[in-house]
Each structure stands twice: as C-alpha cells, then as structure tokens.
Computed example of a mutant assay.
Amino acid sequence: MPRAVAGPEIERLIQLLARLPGLGPRSARRVALHLIKKREGLMAPLAAALTDALGKIVVCRTCGNVDVCDPCSICTDPTRDPLTLVVVADVSDLWALERAGVLNARYHVLGGVLSPLDGVGPEDLNLAALVDRVHQGPVAEVILALGATVDGQTTAHYVTDLLRDLPVKVTRLAQGVPVGGELDYLDEGTLSAAIRARTRM
C-alpha cells in the first residue's frame, strides 16, 4: 500500500479532487499542489465560491436545470418560445446548446439516458415530468437533443413512444452529431448544424 506523502488534510483534498470527472489520482495530486502553491490567489477564492454555490444553487423543479432560483431563469424568461421544448440528458448538454445560441426555447433535463448495462431504467429519469409538461401544454414541438450514442438513441425512441399519443411534433438532432458523440464535447458550429437539420422521429 502506497504511503501518504502529506498530512491528512492534503490527502483528503487529493482524494476529493480525484472524484471529479477527468481527474485521476495523479492529476488530482497536481491540481492539489497547484492550489496549495496559489493559496491566496486561487484556493481561498475557490473555497469561497464553493461555499457560496453550496448555499445558493438549486435544481429547478420544472426543467431540472441548476440555478440560484427555482423555477430557473430559463423557465421564467418571458422571451423564450413556450411552444418548443428541448429534451437533453444532462445540464452540461443544456449549457452546450445555450453556448451555441441557436435556440430560444425551454428545456427539460432527463438526468441521464437509459442504460440497462448501468442499471438506469425509465424510473431513474425525469420522464413523468416531461410527459406532464407536454400534456399540460402549450408545447407544439419536442426536440430530442440527445447524444448519438446507443443509449442516447434508445432513450430518444423511448421518449418518442411516450409522446406518441399527444398532439406534439417530436424531432431529433440530425446531421452534425457524430455517432458516438456527446453534446458537451461538440463545437458550436456542429451544434448549430444539428439543430437546423433536425428531423421528425
């Protein structure tokens, strides 16, 4: 078993950083060391920002977005098109579409995609609320902005079946999204092309 190279406080910092996506133990050590070296200029403001975020950030009960208010600023924005609802897997996908700036719609975050191998079933996703939102109206089009992975496409077909009997047009992203691609990693031009060329399910 490897020995601890620092005190318990530093080791705890490294262990917590290693839980972040894209950071393994080695990267976490480098990040921790950088934070320690920049205590005043980086670590203190980061700690304050994390504390502030912990106390203020909430999940929107309407769409699943994260914001400092509930309902979120997107759901309460009167300039948004209430007839178009964009369904995304995660908040990161919502942010990617907002960065692209090609839609002025409202969103619905599923909280993931169907994945039998990972034990994620329909009951684990925010699907019932989606059906309720469409049923209550005034939604005319649901855009399925889900990744072009097998799980993403399975989820798209499942949602299409759920909405089949409701008076709403269901479309999905088309060209521009590569097979196996995740929305959060695509550039704005690719996302724009995919939105413009969406097709009916």
Rank of each mutant, 00 (worst) to 15 (best):
A6K: 01
R12I: 07
L13K: 02
L13H: 01
Q15I: 05
A18V: 09
R19V: 04
P21V: 03
G22C: 06
L23H: 02
G24S: 01
R26G: 06
R29F: 01
V31G: 03
L33I: 12
L35T: 08
L35V: 02
I36T: 13
M43A: 14
A44H: 01
A44R: 14
P45E: 10
A49M: 10
T51P: 03
D52C: 08
L54Y: 07
K56W: 01
V59E: 15
V59M: 13
C60D: 09
C60F: 11
T62A: 09
V68C: 12
V68T: 15
V68Q: 13
C69Q: 14
D70E: 08
P71E: 04
C72L: 10
S73R: 12
T79R: 02
T79Y: 00
D81K: 03
L83K: 12
L83W: 00
V86S: 04
V91N: 09
D93E: 11
L94G: 03
W95Y: 15
W95N: 15
W95S: 14
R99S: 12
L103S: 04
N104D: 14
N104K: 12
R106Q: 13
H108A: 02
G119L: 09
G119K: 01
L127F: 11
L127P: 06
A128H: 15
L130C: 07
V134G: 08
A140C: 00
V142F: 06
I143F: 01
L144W: 02
A145D: 00
L146V: 06
A148V: 05
A148H: 05
V150N: 05
D151K: 12
T155Y: 10
A156Y: 07
V159E: 09
T160I: 11
D165L: 08
L166G: 11
V170Q: 05
V170S: 03
V170F: 03
T171F: 06
L173A: 05
E182C: 05
L183M: 12
L183C: 10
D187I: 06
D187Q: 09
G189Q: 01
T190S: 11
L191D: 03
S192R: 15
A194F: 03
R196P: 00
R196A: 14
R196I: 12
T199M: 13
